[in-house]
Nucleic acid binder design. Sequence first.
DNA 1: ATTAAAAAAGACATTGATGTCTTTTAATGG
DNA 2: CCATTAAAAGACATCAATGTCTTTTTTAAT
Lengths: 147, 147
Amino acid sequence: MFLSKSFGYALRGVLYVALADKDGRKVQLDEIASRLSVPRHFLAKIMKTMVKEEILSSTKGPYGGFSVNAGTLNAKLIHLVKITDGVEQFNTCVLSLRQCKSKNFCPLHFQMMKLRDDMLDEFSKRSIGDLLEKESPDFIKSISTIA
Amino acid sequence: MFLSKSFGYALRGVLYVALADKDGRKVQLDEIASRLSVPRHFLAKIMKTMVKEEILSSTKGPYGGFSVNAGTLNAKLIHLVKITDGVEQFNTCVLSLRQCKSKNFCPLHFQMMKLRDDMLDEFSKRSIGDLLEKESPDFIKSISTIA
DNA sequence: ATTAAAAAAGACATTGATGTCTTTTAATGG
DNA sequence: CCATTAAAAGACATCAATGTCTTTTTTAAT
């Protein structure tokens, strides 16, 4: 809910690379796509974007693949949202009425803005590293499961 | 955010009919679509669905159009969500990881489930009549503005 | 009955998100 | 330098949401 498949693929992709790095392994697109059950070429575009955004590194050629870099573990979930879904959507009125502004708030404005802010706060605070450090083995396993 | 254009059209359409009813007027598709700046034939499908769902009534032929019925003012927003977007989406993991269930919750499970429940509660409590009775003239005007 | 009006229904078009396939670029080992 | 490997890039396909157009059905007035 709320977020696109692309976001989910991005998150699971970077988590997979980070987990492999813990074991000292570099991973390739073929492995990631098949282990995560994600369309290979579609994932390729998303991985490429994350490399451009310096959330991940990559090298071409033999023994190449994707790997973590200095920023990977510190990358916030909101960054992934920005490069996959964008954040403008969160500023639109939830009832599709006019832009809620002074003297013209929609009836659900305050409740919904709180929900939105709480969600964006959560996504702004949480990093890839957080997810990996604090969570159970069950969660770790879950990234390779179809959503 | 969260909800489709169809939901917004449905809500604004039923509000428009209910407002016209307050003035003793029955309204036709052409008027609704042009006043709300909504694609006429697309809105037609949505209005038809609301008639089937008994949220509104309609009559064909000369002097026909859409009108409120016994259930209109009491219809809850969640009903509009169900017939436009569906509610299954709200049961999927926000991170697109596996279904969060016992011993396998995703890291944002509890925060996100609270946001979801708050939102659905709000949509389940609020009726079309609520929006009309309690709100300012500014809100009433806002339904005819492009979202 | 006939005609006109308006919703209902259905066929088709457009667009954006998602998914697939092929070609190009860069890196490595020999 | 050459062959191989893997990411990068780009062209094309599919699907669902959205939007447009035409035909059918129902109703009301004459």
